[in-house]
């Protein structure tokens, strides 16, 4: 079954068409990558999926339900989580507090819960901490839970973003260039983490990535876009030998 169906998605910024007539499907419990040269429209497409940009035309179905032009927080509640290409941590909060934000969509205490502190609220707070710690443990930085996010090494800051997205308890996880700025060792750990996210947590993964080695290693399916349009789709092997893909990448190499 498809967990995500993108149908003829178009996004225009004035005269510029960032995403053009893009269609693809994502099977449940797979790892798929969206690739393409710089400026191809990958992040824009992600932003349409997660509600940060309102698509101009088309349809997006998540678990069979339309999420086209929905608000981001609603989409997160439905079970789609994302990370940002440029780190967007809550820098002056601790690592644990950062990850606790993810549990917001799965909890409910409000004004009176905060002021009167009934047992249900205390239980909820405990649960939030516990799940958040599990997520930190899963990405391997539980020992840094009480550090301020801004004081972490870059690679660890990336992990906080992943843990935070996992804490929303998603069914679909969208990662926007998660390997950017990581060293080879960290990239290898990322590969195994992505596999564990799918295998142990049963979460479907959609990935934007520049590192071709990494993409080829983890993806079961790859969609290639250029100038906002889909130019190829298939397995790593199929995409690698596609002449249009080779042209798109070779023609743009100097820009990277």
């Amino acid at each position: 079954m498809s967990i995500l169906e993108v149908k003829k998605l178009t996004l225009r910024f004035g005269g510029l068409t960032a995403v053009s007539n893009l269609s693809f499907e994502l099977e449940e419990n797979t790892i798929m990558s969206l690739i393409g040269p710089n400026g191809a429209g990958k992040t824009s497409a992600f932003n349409c999926l997660t509600g940060f940009y309102k698509g101009s035309e088309g349809e997006i179905l998540f678990k069979g339900q339309s999420i086209f032009r929905q608000k981001p927080y609603r989409i997160t509640k439905l079970g789609m989580a994302r990370t940002f290409q440029n780190l967007r941590l809550f820098k002056d909060m601790t690592v644990l507090e950062n990850v606790m934000s993810g549990m917001h969509s799965r909890t409910s205490a409000g004004i009176f819960g905060a002021i009167l502190r009934p047992p249900s609220q205390l239980r909820e707070e405990k649960k939030i901490k516990q799940v958040s710690k599990e997520c930190l443990d899963f990405v391997g930085i539980l020992d840094k839970e009480s550090r301020l996010a801004r004081n972490l090494a870059y690679g660890d800051q990336r992990r906080v973003e992943w843990a935070r997205a996992l804490a929303t308890q998603p069914q679909l996880l969208l990662l926007d260039e998660p390997a950017a700025g990581l060293n080879q060792d960290e990239k290898d750990q990322l590969v195994s983490l992505i596999r564990r996210i799918r295998k142990d947590l049963g979460i479907t993964v959609l990935l934007i990535e520049h590192d071709m080695g990494l993409v080829m290693k983890v993806s079961e399916k790859i969609v290639v876009i250029d100038y906002g349009q889909k130019i190829a789709e298939g397995t790593a092997e199929e995409v690698k030998n596609n002449p249009r893909v080779i042209e798109a990448y070779l023609g743009k190499e100097d820009e990277e």
Binding site: T76, F84, F90, H104, A114, I115
Partner: peptide, 30 residues
């Protein structure tokens, strides 16, 4: 009341929004 609000789910939500509204919204906060 101010202390309790500060140390609550709601208090954290305010702080998340103050630090980065987009990221907060991506975490499911309205």
């Amino acid at each position: 009341i101010a202390i309790r609000l500060h140390n609550s789910r709601l208090g954290r939500a305010w702080q998340y929004i103050r630090e980065d509204e987009d990221a907060a919204e991506a975490m499911g906060i309205d």
